[in-house]
Each structure stands twice: as structure tokens, then as C-alpha cells.
Computed example of a mutant assay.
Amino acid sequence: MAAPIRTLPLIAALALGLAACQKDGEPAEAKARGASAQTVTVANPQSRSLPRSITVSGPVAAVEEMQLGVELSGLRVTRLAVDVGQQVRRGQVLLILDHRMLDADLVQANAALREADAGAALARANLARGENLARDKFISAMQLDELRAARTQAEARLGTARAARDSTALRRSFADLRAPADGLISKRLVQPGQVVSAGMELLRLIKDGRLEWRAELPSEQLARVSPGDVIALVSRDGTRVDGRVRAVTPGVDAATRTGTVYADLPQPGTLQPGAFLEGRIDTGLVQAVVVPAAAVVLRDGFSTVFTVDAKGLAHQVRIEAGTRDNGQVEVRSGLKAGDRVVLAGAGFLADGDAVRVVDATQPAATP
């Protein structure tokens, strides 16, 4: 029994040595990890107001494009007074048809009107004389009635002749195609010498020269747009053109699930109808969580940030990025209150890396 008692001091000494080795090794490992840690700066997500916008493409079109034609058939175009791209005024003559036959009809109608007018004047005079004679009993009551009937018939013939003259004059006016409103000639479909027919489209007129931009939006985006919202377009030559939403369709198409936004362009500049342009619709301000743009990196095609925990370890977090504005990126999901996001040095980190946080005024080390 003596031998085991002698080994007790040896075992105790070995245990103390192992404990000392463990205490000495922990600071060494921590020091090694601290030495290899990357120096970074961090920032906290902030809440601020961001402009909300929708970017979508659509065509430029006329607000109201009028298709112009004549109401006569079988007449030849003798003169075309305008061409494509020309500004016209309301009432301006755009096109003239051969009106020689119409002029002759109008002369005949005027002559018939004068004849009927003379007949009515004669009938009124005969009736006036007959009434004087009837008072003195020189004619009978039946003769007086006949004079009154003749007066009535003559006035009816005068009314018929006047209506015929007015109809002929109106028909003659149809030979001159006039602009129904101020505007811009956008298309010409007729040539001088061409024989036209009633209802045939001859010219197109953009009323008042007004253009608009139209965009098809899905229902969830359409609900965010309201009349009065500002839009911004960029023309092919790089010029910015501003407009304002005039109307939004009250519903969506059952087949496409989209609705249409109509935006007025008061100063279209060089924009032309038919141009297909990308536009940004500003839909107002929204309160959002943002981080500096330098904190957002792309990993596997997704927007990613790195957060730092209390132990000094970096964690890769995938976020849903939204609007970018003045060096800030909206974070719609992925972060929570109190997170510390790596700012400088985020592009060199991997998930689980040890980091050393320094003040933002100090430069972050790079590998």
C-alpha cells in the first residue's frame, strides 16, 4: 500500500501542469485570432424618407389624333395646302377638291331662291290689295281666301328654296377641308389629282400638338400611381423630358393583369409619336431602412451585407435591396434593429471571418 501513496504528489503535479498549459494556451489562441482579424468599419441601419419610384418603358403617343376626311365622293383633289409636320390653325384650309360643279349648283340654288323670294313678295302684295278691296266689298270672301292661300304657298316655296340653297352651300363648303382644331399634321394619305370618296382618311392631325406617354403596369404597381405624379423620360438624344400623370385606368385587363398610366408631356421637345422610352414615375416618399451603398456587395448574384456579432465574427446576410438614393440603399428585408453592418472592407470578407472594428475615421485594412 506504500507505493500508491508515493505516486499521489506526482499525479497532483501533472494535473497542475496541464491546467497551467491550458491557461497559457487560451491567450495565445485569442492573440493569434486577433492578429489575423481584418480591420473594418461598421455602420448602423438608419430610418429615413426615400423617394419611391417605378421604372417602366412605354410609347409616346398623341393625346388626341384626329383622322380627317371629306364628305363628298367622286371629286378630285386640286390642291393640297399642308404637309407632314406643319403646324396649322383652326379653320385653316388643308385641302381643296374640284368644286366647279358645286359652284354651278350653288348659283342655280341662289337663282331659285331669288325667284321664290320675288313670288312671295308678289303674293304678299296681292293679299294686301285684296284686303283693301274686300273692306269696300269689291271682292268676295272666297277671293280673299284664295289670295291668302297664294301668299302661304309662295312663302312655303321661299322656305324650300332657302333650304335648298343652304344645303347646296353646305355641300360646296365640303370641298374645302379645314382644320377642326389647332394642331400638327402627323400623316398625309392623299396626293394632288387623286379622286377621293366620302369617309376616306386623307390627313391626320395631332390636336393642339399634345403628346403623352403611356405605360402598362401590373396591378400591384398600378395601385401606387396617382394622377399628378411626376415622370421623367430620357429622349434618344439624352435630353430629359418631364411630365405628369394625367389619368390611371380604374381597373386592370383580365387577360394581361395590367393597367395603363397616361402622362401628359407639356414640353415634349424632340420626342416623336411612336418612340418607345423608359420612364421613371415618382410616387412620393416612403419611410425606409437604409444602409450606405458601400456596405452592399454582390454574392452569387444577390445583394448581401456582413453583420458583426459581439464576438467579433462577420456573418453574411442576404437582403432585399430597394431604391438607391444619394449613396444610400433601401433594405426591405434581411436586417433587424441593432445590427452592425460592415462598411469599409465588406468586399473582402467571408462568412464567419474574424474582424476588428475600428472607428470610421481610421482607414480599414485590406488583405
Score class of each variant (00 low, 15 high):
residue 6 R to F: 09
residue 8 L to P: 00
residue 17 G to L: 15
residue 19 A to V: 14
residue 25 G to L: 15
residue 26 E to K: 14
residue 31 K to S: 14
residue 33 R to Y: 10
residue 33 R to L: 15
residue 34 G to I: 01
residue 35 A to H: 12
residue 37 A to L: 05
residue 42 V to R: 00
residue 46 Q to E: 13
residue 50 L to T: 07
residue 50 L to A: 10
residue 50 L to F: 09
residue 55 T to H: 07
residue 57 S to L: 07
residue 58 G to Q: 06
residue 59 P to W: 07
residue 63 V to A: 14
residue 65 E to Y: 04
residue 66 M to G: 02
residue 69 G to T: 07
residue 74 G to D: 06
residue 74 G to W: 07
residue 81 A to H: 13
residue 81 A to C: 11
residue 98 D to A: 12
residue 99 H to Q: 13
residue 102 L to K: 03
residue 102 L to S: 11
residue 102 L to N: 06
residue 112 A to L: 07
residue 113 L to N: 08
residue 121 A to V: 05
residue 122 L to S: 11
residue 127 L to E: 13
residue 133 L to P: 06
residue 135 R to F: 05
residue 137 K to E: 15
residue 139 I to C: 08
residue 144 L to S: 05
residue 146 E to L: 13
residue 156 A to I: 10
residue 164 A to H: 07
residue 167 S to Q: 15
residue 174 F to E: 10
residue 176 D to A: 14
residue 184 L to E: 03
residue 187 K to M: 09
residue 188 R to W: 05
residue 192 P to Y: 10
residue 200 M to W: 00
residue 207 K to S: 13
residue 208 D to V: 00
residue 210 R to H: 08
residue 211 L to A: 03
residue 215 A to F: 05
residue 219 S to I: 12
residue 223 A to N: 07
residue 224 R to Q: 15
residue 227 P to G: 08
residue 228 G to Q: 07
residue 231 I to S: 01
residue 239 T to M: 09
residue 241 V to S: 00
residue 247 A to H: 11
residue 247 A to S: 13
residue 252 V to C: 05
residue 261 V to Y: 01
residue 264 D to H: 11
residue 275 A to K: 00
residue 287 Q to D: 15
residue 290 V to E: 03
residue 292 P to F: 07
residue 294 A to P: 03
residue 295 A to V: 08
residue 299 R to H: 13
residue 303 S to I: 00
residue 307 T to A: 02
residue 324 R to Q: 12
residue 325 D to M: 04
residue 326 N to L: 10
residue 330 E to G: 04
residue 333 S to M: 04
residue 335 L to R: 02
residue 335 L to P: 01
residue 338 G to S: 10
residue 339 D to L: 03
residue 342 V to S: 03
residue 348 F to T: 10
residue 349 L to Q: 00
residue 351 D to V: 03
